[in-house]
Amino acid sequence: MTTAADPLLSIEGLSVTMPTPSGPVELVHRTDIEIGEGEIVGLAGESGSGKTMTASAIMGILPPGARAGGRIMFEGRDLLSLSRAELDTVRGNRIAIVFQDPSAALHPLLTIGTQLTEHLIHHKGVTKKQANARAVELLDLVRIRDPHHAVKAFPHQFSGGMRQRAAIAIALACEPRLLIADEPTTALDVTVQAGILRLFDRLARETGVSMLFITHDLGVMNSIADRTYVFKDGTVVESGVTTTILNEPSHEYTKALIASRAQSLAEERVQQEARP
């Protein structure tokens, strides 16, 4: 589903370089990515292939010393050329991110309610009372039981899956147009992964938010992404409609990824059958 009109987000010739003792290393190399309105776009690739660096470049949270080149166009502005203050009006507000490990990404000493409302109050100028009411709505939206009670809870009182649901609710608080999900199921138990994936799928349909979904797992990609970019060594080696890529991969690397996925699926099945 490529849009003929201007895409919501358009990454043009993005490169990210990191200084190392043996000279600068290019982690992302001249990458082009487009995300249309309401589209779910996947970024697939092994760890270290530059997927997370791409997401960090969009959010302006690259590691210290890293430099981004090229353009990241969003709502008519190049995010890479914005000042910190200008970028702060975009991130958390128009673009939000869900990180891999909710146990590390949520502040351990602040209540879920505070973490749900602080950016809402800041970006939307709503009162604390309005924000609290919205917080309860949001927790309900991500299917956290007893949301009135949950807003007063601290992250450690939640299970891993609930923490990730809370993190998703936090990301959605300001009704962003783009949601970046960086390996959002990788740190979770296999048993709760499917629930979180279904949640993303439902949220995309219900709220119409566009998504950039990052994962190393092609099976996950298959169940969620409309289009997929396959990343290798910091650049896109193949892109297109997800089902097409999975059924008729043209690049050797994609074939290898699919093969390794089939391998691990087979291993899982053997393990499951071996269990009493």
Partner: peptide
Amino acid sequence: AEYIRSAIAKGLPRRIITWRHVFRA
């Protein structure tokens, strides 16, 4: 810490990040 990266990604003003998120922890 990652939760400070979260706070930055939320576009919060530096004052809130410093005192509510960093200072307390």
